[in-house]
Design a protein around this nucleic acid. Structure first.
Lengths: 335, 335
DNA sequence: TTGAAAGCGCTAACAT
DNA sequence: ATGTTAGCGCTTTCAA
């Protein structure tokens, strides 16, 4: 019972723990016969060195950490890209979702980073941190789509403003004039930039921005529910003919609310999302959305953090382009 | 630079390391004034205890490990379910993808488990292990869809045979008679069961199984490429009118190969997948597939492993039902 | 070639 | 109330 430790191996093999350590780490200075015997015991007992104990003693672990607040469509999509890029590099991946739990929704990234940096992981990729990360943890850090904007750390993000503007221009081209915006969170950079793109597109078209058509949606289905219903409420005199939601998760929820209220998409209401997570294809009709190259953002973040680890020079900020993906959820105004 | 340790805090606050530990762990026996001073230094320095050092000393870490070979659509979909279920339990999640890298494609689960169990994680959920897991690591383990069948550990899986049978029955009902099967890997239980379901359906319909219509696809796009092309090769006298692929990833690839060869889906070829990962909606047309309740399998696995951790009795095997999702990739034979 | 011993950062008995 | 000490599992000098 319990785990097999290096001492167990040493005892059974009749050697010291130091010798076992040398054998399993392929160090010189062990006689072939001893090595063979030790290896035999290792196999018998199924010994594998504890990542924790080894990390504590060594300076490096060969593990890259991916720190997320939660495993949802956005972060897991990045994870797929990161995972495919790590293949063949000799590094292992450790994705950690720490502590949105205890009420403290903010500060998870700093906590997780401090808890893992320097001991468990050699470098970190932090997904959408909501605060500026201090480099004081002594390991390379790359932030993907930081909610504070490109300050402090190295970052990988996509062109939120242009993406949002193109989304709204698409709606304008379809004849929409009353276009609502279900925003993210005002404290998040990406949400601010997407709202900015929305405003730019409207203004460029000579349309005055109507504050009553803008709501905070919080990026999540449950936080988006009330604002979505307010926007589409049957009692509203002038219902918008289109909604640009700040991300796919809330856009998907808008489609559900619309169906709930008996509105047809896209005949009665056009909906555009942002991100192009796989789930955006699961609505009926499939969602028109702004595609962020999540897979590529993940692979680039991994490459960047490994370059940093190896001392190769790297640009500090990498911004990838978005592209509009037109699917079934948008159509000409008035059906 | 480097990480801030408990000794740094102790030195600056002018107290012993033990006192700092007591303060940050809310132990009794520290005067309010000292506690306040220590907390001040902790805040100033941004100290957070190292997960590694703490794990090594303590018996429990409050972290549940999710062990995967790779972060691909299947495992990340489970991860979403696990993540949503962990919310509010006080546990944190650590997803680890260890070592398919160094050639040794097999044995990753035993290695990862040995490296993490007992030191970093209190319990583990292992995704599609390809070998029987020994309970000898001293922590609760739940295997999701083990490729060896429900032996040894606690397991959560879905009804592969029935799911496969229903998929093929759907094709039969559409009039298909030459139905190919792009299988998984013969060494994997889930692949065997899906092939079994395929055979059962054909035999029940009085159709002799044609071995030349069965290929090993390996579950992955790149391993599925050659067998898919063989199945659909223009040179073949009697091309199948439908393909039942062992999972969505290979089914998606079949659709791509079909398009490549100028075949229309579903007019010239019907394709059915298995899993219903979000990606199954991204093909044109969207994939008809057997839905595994991946989200629910994840949440159930988490509940099971937490029950085990807390000593609550639990059934050893949980099998969830599959359901056929008919979308655009299947149609009547002959277009 | 081998082993003894120190120490990584931390917690928990056990003094004081 | 505070500090001293031992030790978690491992790697790494250094001495034998």
């Amino acid at each position: 019972m319990g785990r097999v430790t290096i001492s167990d191996v040493a005892r059974v093999a009749g050697v010291s723990v130091a010798t076992v350590s040398k054998v399993v780490n392929h160090r010189y200075g062990v006689s072939p016969s001893t090595a063979e015997r030790v290896l035999g015991v290792v196999a018998d007992l199924g010994y594998e060195s504890s990542l924790v104990a080894r990390s504590l003693r060594r300076q490096s672990t060969n593990v890259v950490g991916v720190l997320v607040a939660e495993f949802e469509p956005y972060s897991t999509e990045l994870l797929k890209g990161i995972s495919s890029a790590v293949d063949g590099t000799g590094y292992e991946l450790l994705a950690y979702s720490g502590g949105t739990d205890g009420g403290a929704i903010t500060g998870w990234e700093r906590r997780s980073l401090s808890r893992l940096a320097g001991t468990l992981i050699d470098a970190a990729i932090v997904v959408t941190p909501t605060m500026v990360l201090s480099e004081a943890n002594g390991i390379p850090v790359v932030a993907i789509d930081p909610h504070t904007g490109p300050e402090g750390t190295h970052t990988v993000d996509s062109d939120n403003t242009t993406g949002a503007r193109e989304a709204v221009e698409h709606l304008l081209a379809l004849g929409h004039r009353r276009i609502a915006h279900l925003g993210g969170r005002p404290d998040l950079e990406s949400a601010r930039l997407r709202e900015l793109g929305y405003r730019q597109a409207l203004e460029a078209a000579g349309i005055t921005v109507d504050q009553s058509l803008i709501r905070v949606g919080g990026y999540r289905p449950n936080t988006a529910d009330t604002p979505a219903r307010e926007l589409l409420a049957p009692s509203r005199g002038e219902r918008p003919t289109a909604v640009f939601a700040a991300n796919d998760q809330s856009a998907i929820h808008v489609v559900e609310v619309a169906h709930d209220l008996g509105l047809r998409v896209p005949e009665d209401l056009s909906v555009v999302g942002f991100d192009n997570v796989p789930e955006s294809m699961t609505t009926t009709p499939a969602l028109t959305t702004v595609s962020q190259p999540l897979h590529e953002m993940g692979t680039e973040a991994l490459r960047m953090v490994l370059d940093l680890l190896e001392g190769s020079p790297r640009e500090q900020h990498l911004r990838l382009p978005t592209s509009l993906v037109v699917r079934g959820s948008t159509g000409p105004v008035g059906g």
